[in-house]
Design a protein around this nucleic acid. Structure first.
Length: 481
RNA sequence: UCCUCAGUAGCUCAGUUGGUUAGAGCACCUGACUGUUAAUCAGGGAGUCGUAGGUUCAAGUCCUACCUGAGGAGCCA
């Protein structure tokens, strides 16, 4: 009797009407009068709801009463052309089963729009909103597109370890992993904690980067990428940082820094195009949401482009590529520098501040910028040294509104140069023996980069807080859910 | 971690130089309406004013500390 369940996404596109269908989902709204009720049902397959029309006379009073915002329902009915404006098809209900009621007095979501801050406090339910439905459908699409992109390019997906015994990445503070009794840890004669009694027989932490391990893979498989969770115990309280985030780290043998930049730019464009080709309904919703949000803002705070326009714009042109040294010159000759408007003065050798990056991307070039050849003193030990003795082949890709979305480099493949640099920077060499051996045996020029998945998500969705593009954000003082 | 701002009904917010019984919109409930589209109209219930101290005849309002959130900065992806 009961038809197989259809997804609402498919029914809304169907031209085959006057047939029995079954949908299962959650009630978004109910409208109507004594005779007829209109129930908007959503099953997550699309941002759009299907309208279920209930002839009240044909249904038990309790059923109709319990169809409230948030309730889960099983609907059998006839898919028909809608006689009213607003939707092409709707379902004339024949049977309705309520799986679970949602007490309207207590259900925290209303038909009306909520603030993102409030929804963050009910992250277990925020999936049921249009905004987060859209965001997480896009998040899936982006994750899928990343695998597809690399797979189509002969990259292998490499699982780098989550637990790491090396703290040499230098990418930030780490979370310790230990099974020792925290109240009463075993101690050596000198009073320090004896980690040889710990689970792994040594100090271990959650990974801050899979890069070093990816490099090992690349020295045999040629092209690999990692895509996994990454953990940083930094006390960062910004809309761009998480303590737990997802990072994509491709690593390519026989790639120099230019090949590296080409790949990174191509990949970003591919991902943005994928979103435009596959997530239009959700993007349109998010675009309207942004317009609504900016309605009351003063003109100078409004975005210059609408969301979809902004994404299409990225596809059109090439990213601006220049060296760090050239960027410093541009900044030195800029209006804000001459008027003393920068809070941090510009000079060769400094690490660029947010205000400098934003000037380059948002004011000067007005498009994504790739900076290369940074001073070696402000970059990591593994980056390939240039012949000038001052710079390394590092590259950062800066996006409008986001800042650094990708950081990467050509890696130093020369054993002597690398081990000298490790000594100079006081990195514990004994922990790095395996990394150094790849330079001892059949070393090759190679490159790679790290893409912050949530930063990509910020850009693609137009959301402004990184906590709203990951299902369960982990930030300082917050690990609820 | 630093700087700034905020915390009042389920949600979003107003609340004057400190002064009667703390308000509005939405949501919710009840009623009306023969097809609604954030439905509409009428009525109703709803509050430990973030927490703890302090000043005062009197504190939502002033002071101190703390908690939580947001924005900016640093760290970075």
């Amino acid at each position: 009797m009961e038809k197989r369940r259809s997804f609402i996404k498919d029914l809304l596109q169907s031209t085959e009407v006057d047939r029995d269908v079954n949908v299962k989902g959650w009630v978004r709204t109910k409208r109507g009068n004594k005779q007829v009720a209109f129930v908007a049902v959503n099953d997550g397959s699309t941002i759009n709801n299907i309208q279920v029309v209930i002839d009240i006379a044909n249904f038990d009073e309790n059923i109709v009463k319990n169809i409230t915002t948030g309730a889960s329902v099983n609907v059998n009915g006839l898919l028909v052309k809608s006689v009213a404006q607003g939707q092409n098809v709707e379902i004339q209900a024949k049977e309705i089963e309520i799986y679970g009621t949602a007490d309207p007095e207590k259900y925290p979501l209303q038909k009306k729009r909520h603030s993102l801050e409030y929804l963050r406090e009910i992250a277990h339910l925020r999936f049921r909103t249009n905004t987060f439905g859209a965001v997480f459908r896009i998040r899936h699409a982006m994750a899928f597109a990343i695998h597809k992109y690399f797979n189509d390019k002969n990259f292998y997906y490499l699982h780098s370890p989550i637990i790491t015994g090396s703290d040499a990445e230098g990418a930030g503070e780490m979370f310790r992993v230990s099974t020792l009794d925290i109240e009463n840890p075993p101690k050596g004669e000198d009073g320090t904690i004896n980690f040889t009694e710990d689970f792994f027989g040594k100090e271990t932490n959650l990974t801050v980067s899979g890069q070093l391990e990816a490099e090992l893979g690349a020295t045999a498989l040629s092209n690999v990428y990692t895509f996994g969770p990454t953990f940083r115990a930094e006390n960062s309280n910004t809309p761009r940082h998480l303590a737990e985030f997802w990072m994509i780290e491709p690593e390519m043998a026989f790639y120099d820094i230019h090949d590296n930049m080409d790949l990174a730019e191509d990949m970003l464009k591919y991902l943005i195009k994928y979103a435009l080709d596959n997530c239009m309904d959700d993007l349109k919703f998010l675009e309207n949401r942004l317009l609504e949000e900016e309605k009351n803002k003063p003109q100078n705070e409004k975005s210059e482009m609408k969301l979809i326009e902004k994404l299409e714009f990225i596809l059109k042109g090439n990213f601006e590529r220049l060296t760090y040294t050239e960027a410093i010159k541009v900044l030195e000759n800029s209006k804000p520098a001459k008027k003393g408007k920068f809070q941090f003065p510009v000079e060769w050798g400094i690490d660029l501040q947010s205000e400098h990056e934003r000037y380059l991307v948002e004011k000067h070039y007005k498009k994504p910028v790739i900076l290369v050849d940074y001073p070696k003193n402000i970059k990591a030990f593994y980056m390939k040294q240039n012949d000038d003795g001052k710079t390394v082949r590092a590259m950062d890709i800066l996006f409008p509104g986001i800042g650094e979305i990708i950081g990467g480099s050509q890696r130093e493949e020369d054993y002597d140069k690398l081990s000298t640099r490790i000594k100079e920077m006081n990195i514990p060499e004994k922990d790095m023996w395996w990394y150094l051996e790849t330079r001892k045996f059949g070393t090759v020029p190679h490159s790679g980069y790290g893409l912050g998945f949530e930063r990509l998500m910020l850009f693609v969705t137009g959301m402004s807080n990184i906590r709203d593009v990951i299902p369960f954000p982990r930030t300082p003082k917050n690990a609820e859910f």
